[in-house]
Structures are given as C-alpha cells and as structure tokens.
Amino acid sequence: MAKGKKQSSEPKGRKITLKMAKLALKLTVDGKRRLDLSNMEITTFPKCILKLCDVDELDLSRNLLKKIPDSIAKFVNLCFLDLHSNQLDKVPEAIGRLRNLYSLNLCNNCLSTVGLPNEIGLLRKLRSLNLGMNVLESIPSSIAALKELRHLGLFNNQLTRVPECLRNLPYLETVNLKCNPIPLEDDKGIDTIQRVECLYLVRESSLCACCLQKVKDNRQRVNSRLSRGPTHRKSIFAGLNTPNSVAKGMLTSSSCSGKSGGW
C-alpha cells in the first residue's frame, strides 16, 4: 500500500464483466429472458449490464448494493425486479419509468420514508410490491395509484398506523403488516383486506446473514413471551415468519399454520 494512503474499510466487492453477465442470462419456463446476478457480493451496480437492458427480469438480490443509478430506467422491458437483501437507503425516481414492471421486491434494505419516491406510483401495472424489513414510518400516498396491485408487503417496518392509501386499491388481496408498532385498534382499518400469515420452513444455510439474524431475534422474542406465561398460538407463528423471496423458493411445508403463499 502506498505511503500516506489509508486503506478503505469499504468492501471491494466482485467485479461483474459483460461476459459474466451473459453467462448469467437464462430463459425462464414461460419464455422470459432473466438476468440473475443474485448473491454475487456486488457492491456497485454493474454498468456493463446496460448492454443487456432488453431483459424481462433482473435479479440483483442478496448483494451489497447501496445505490441503484438512474440508468435503471433503460430496462424498459422489465416485468420483474428483485433487489431484496441489499443495503439500499434510497430508490431512484427513475424507477417510475419502468412502466411494464409487474413485480418489485425491495425487502430487507435500509429504506426510510424519504428514500421511497412518489414516482413509485407510476408503476401502473405493478401487482406485487414487497417493502418489508426496512425502516419505513410511512409510505408514499402515490401508492394509491397502483390500481392493479394485488400483494403488498410492509412487515417489519416502523409504521404506526395502517396507510390510508390502501383503501384506494381495488384489487389488493393480501397485505402483510406484521411487526409494526400499529395500535390494535387501528388494525380495523383494513378489514376488507385479507391478512395472511405464512410459515416458511427453510434451511438456515439458505438465508443471508441479515435474514438469519432477524429470524433468530424473532425466535428469541417469542421464547421470552412464552416464558412469561400462556400466549395465543397465532403469535407464535407470527414470530417464526421468514418473509423473504429465498424462503418462498425453499418452501417445504405449511402444515403447521395451515396456510401457504408468497408472503
């Protein structure tokens, strides 16, 4: 190391080349072109993948990304974008230009209220939006414009009330608001929405370190409540949820809770 230069504490991450990206390009069973760069220790959005911006699906989940550039708007054909389990504290306004987006997963990042732009309401074809495991105290009112939205994940945030904009989503089928500091009396605000509880059984080795720690913390809280006295069975399963697309893919059983699903 050269004299006088400080060694950076930031992880260098893995450099993705165009050749590597092309090898990661797959064809899904329904004929979609999917670029899967998940779990590759990427710290910076790879500029080289802009040459593959005609893909239908992009998976950058389980990396170390802190920023998504405005150039994401070049992926005009995207119907599926997975950014879960990164270190994002902000979503670019350019996200609103992905007008064909069907599914957006932003779960398990560092998103606060100011990090989620109003432009997210421009994604009029969106049916699935996962904002769970962030630090949101509220969500943009523009989400009321997502008239095609079916599934919304808001679990493990800092919401203190049920978002009013949810009343304006005519096709919303499921919303997960677990593990938010919402008073019980405010729960009645979404009585027309089906609130699902899912138990995903996965191998610990299949979860990223952050998700695994959250599961262990939840389990410890549940055990603590049990040691203080009897509790309702519903609360036990609430603490055992692992709301992550990894868990969704590794679903092995739902017999304990009697329910299954994607949240």
Rank of each mutant, 00 (worst) to 15 (best):
G13D: 08
K32A: 12
I182T: 01
Y171C: 14
S128K: 05
S8N: 12
L111Q: 03
C179E: 07
D217M: 08
S205T: 14
A24K: 12
Y200R: 12
P230M: 05
P163K: 11
L23K: 15
L126W: 01
S128N: 12
I236H: 10
R97H: 12
L184F: 11
K125G: 01
I190E: 09
S257N: 13
K19P: 01
L65D: 01
K214P: 00
N109C: 09
L78G: 01
T43G: 05
R221V: 09
S255Q: 13
A209L: 12
K6H: 08
A94Q: 13
R203W: 00
T242L: 04
G249I: 02
T174S: 10
S103L: 13
L35P: 07
G121P: 01
K216E: 06
L35S: 07
I49V: 14
K3A: 14
K125F: 02
S141Q: 05
I236G: 03
R62P: 00
K90D: 09
N39C: 05
A2Y: 04
A2P: 13
C208K: 06
M40I: 05
S103K: 11
M20G: 10
A247I: 06
L64R: 14
T43M: 02
F80Y: 15
L212W: 06
C256H: 11
Q213R: 15
P181Q: 05
L251E: 14
Y102Q: 03
N218W: 09
C210L: 11
S254A: 14
D217P: 01
K74D: 14
R97C: 09
L184K: 15
S206D: 05
V196G: 07
K248W: 11
L131K: 03
C256Q: 11
K5C: 06
R167G: 05
S255E: 11
L101H: 01
S138Y: 04
P92A: 11
C256L: 14
N63S: 01
E197Q: 14
L240D: 04
I95A: 09
K47R: 10
I182R: 03
S112A: 13
N168I: 01
E164H: 12
L136F: 00
K51R: 14
L27Q: 15
A144R: 02
F45P: 04
V215D: 05
I139K: 07
L101W: 01
V91A: 04
S128P: 00
L199M: 08
N108Y: 06
R33A: 07
L207A: 04
E119G: 03
G4Q: 08
N100A: 11
K259S: 15
L81W: 06
D59P: 00
N156V: 07
P46Q: 06
T113K: 07
T174G: 04
L172G: 02
L101P: 00
L129D: 03
N86Y: 06
N77F: 02
D59C: 07
Q87P: 00
L101F: 02
S9Y: 09
R124C: 03
C79L: 02
I72T: 06
N168Q: 14
L154Y: 03
I236Y: 10
L126G: 00
N176T: 15
V246E: 10
N157H: 10
A94M: 05
L88M: 04
D59E: 06
R62D: 04
L111C: 11
Q220I: 00
G13H: 12
F75W: 08
L201H: 08
L78P: 13
A144D: 04
G262N: 12
T17M: 10
E197M: 10
